[in-house]
Design a protein around this nucleic acid. Structure first.
Length: 295
DNA sequence: GCCCAGGTGAAGC
DNA sequence: GCTTCACATGGG
C-alpha cells in the first residue's frame, strides 16, 4: 500500500463545520477554509468539498480507516433521519443543518473531556482541554508546510496529543487545578487512576448492553447520567443515548411543552420514548438548532 | 457585583 | 420520586 499525506473521502450530506463545532469535540480549530485537529497521534487537516472531504496529515498514512471511523463516513444519514419523529420541531431542526453528523471519539478523551464539561461553557471547556494537552500531552508532528503566520499571541505552532490515562494518573490534583478545571480536578484524577490501576475497564463498556454500560460509567465520581450519555453516544456509538443538558432541556420545554412547565425527569421520560432508535442523532440536531437558531 | 455555563452528589421533604 | 444547594472559574 502506498503511503500518503493526502486523500479525498467521497461522501454526501456531511457538514464538516457544523459537526466539528457542535459541542461533541473540543480540540478542532478553524484555520482559513480548513479544520485542524488531532486524532490519536495523527495531526489532521480537513477541508469541505462539494462531493466530499479533503484530508491531509503531517506524517505519511498507510491506512485512512482511523479517519473514516472518526468521521463515521459509512453511516447512512438519510436512513437515520427517516427514523426521527415526524413532527414540526424535528423537521425544523434537520432543515436548519441537514449534514450534521455524530463522530466516533476515543473513549478516554471523550470521558475526560466531558468530566471537565460540567457547568462550563463550551468555549471554556475548549480552554481547559487545550491547557491539559499543552502541558501533559505529547508533541505531535504537524509540519505539513511552513506555517505562514504562527499565532502571534502565544507563538504556538505545536500541537499535542490528548494526555493518556497513565499520564493523567501520574499527576497531582494541584497540577490539574492549574489547568483551570476547579472542582472537576479530583474527578478527572480519580477516573484516570481507576482506569490506570485496572479497577475500571473502558473496553468492557463497549460490549455491555446500553443500560449496564450507562450504570457502569456512572460509578465514576463526577459522572452522572448526562455525562455518561455523552460518552455512550460520542465514543461508544450507542445511538439511543440521549444526553439532557440545559440546552436540550430548554429545547424540549420550548418545542414540545410550550404551555406548561415540565420537570426535568418528565422531559427525560418523554425523550426516551419519543425520539426512536437514533435518539442521540435527534438530540444532536436539537442541540445544534437550539444553539445556532433559537437564541 | 450579578448571572450563567453540554452537571453532580448530598441532603432535604 | 422531586427540589435545592455547594462546588471553581471565567465570560457577558
Amino acid at each position: 500500500m502506498i503511503s500518503s499525506v493526502k486523500t479525498f473521502l467521497r461522501v454526501r450530506d456531511y457538514d464538516l463545520a457544523a459537526t466539528l463545532d457542535s459541542g461533541q469535540v473540543f480540540r478542532w480549530q478553524k484555520q482559513n477554509d480548513a479544520w485542524v485537529g488531532v486524532i490519536g497521534k495523527h495531526w489532521v487537516r480537513l477541508t469541505q468539498a462539494p462531493d466530499g472531504i479533503r484530508a491531509e496529515t503531517a506524517a505519511p498514512v498507510e491506512n485512512w480507516n482511523f479517519l473514516r471511523e472518526f468521521l463515521q463516513m459509512e453511516v447512512d444519514l438519510a436512513a437515520v433521519l427517516k427514523t426521527f419523529p415526524d413532527d414540526e420541531p424535528m423537521r425544523a431542526a434537520v432543515a436548519a443543518c441537514p449534514g450534521l453528523r455524530l463522530l466516533k471519539q476515543d473513549p478516554w478523551e471523550c470521558l475526560a473531556s466531558f468530566i471537565l464539561s460540567s457547568t462550563k461553557q463550551i468555549v471554556q471547556i475548549r480552554q481547559i482541554v487545550a491547557l491539559l494537552c499543552e502541558r501533559f500531552g505529547q508533541p505531535i508532528n504537524c509540519s505539513v508546510e511552513p506555517v505562514a503566520r504562527p499565532d502571534s499571541a502565544t507563538g504556538r505552532t505545536l500541537q499535542f496529543s490528548f494526555p493518556s490515562v497513565e499520564q493523567i494518573a501520574r499527576l497531582t490534583e494541584a497540577e490539574l487545578r492549574a489547568c483551570k478545571m476547579g472542582f472537576r480536578a479530583p474527578n478527572l484524577l480519580a477516573a484516570a487512576r481507576e482506569i490506570a490501576e485496572g479497577r475500571f475497564d473502558l473496553e468492557r463498556i463497549r460490549h455491555l448492553p446500553h443500560a449496564e454500560a450507562r450504570a457502569e460509567l456512572m460509578k465514576l465520581r463526577g459522572v452522572g447520567g448526562k455525562i455518561a450519555d455523552c460518552v455512550l453516544l460520542f465514543a461508544y456509538g450507542f445511538d439511543s443515548a440521549f444526553p439532557v443538558d440545559v440546552w436540550i432541556e430548554r429545547a424540549l420545554q420550548r418545542l414540545y411543552f410550550p404551555r406548561r412547565r415540565a420537570s426535568e425527569p418528565r422531559l427525560r421520560r418523554f425523550a426516551a420514548k419519543h425520539f426512536g432508535p437514533h435518539a442521540g442523532y435527534a438530540q444532536q440536531y436539537l442541540f445544534h438548532y437550539m444553539r445556532t437558531k433559537l437564541k
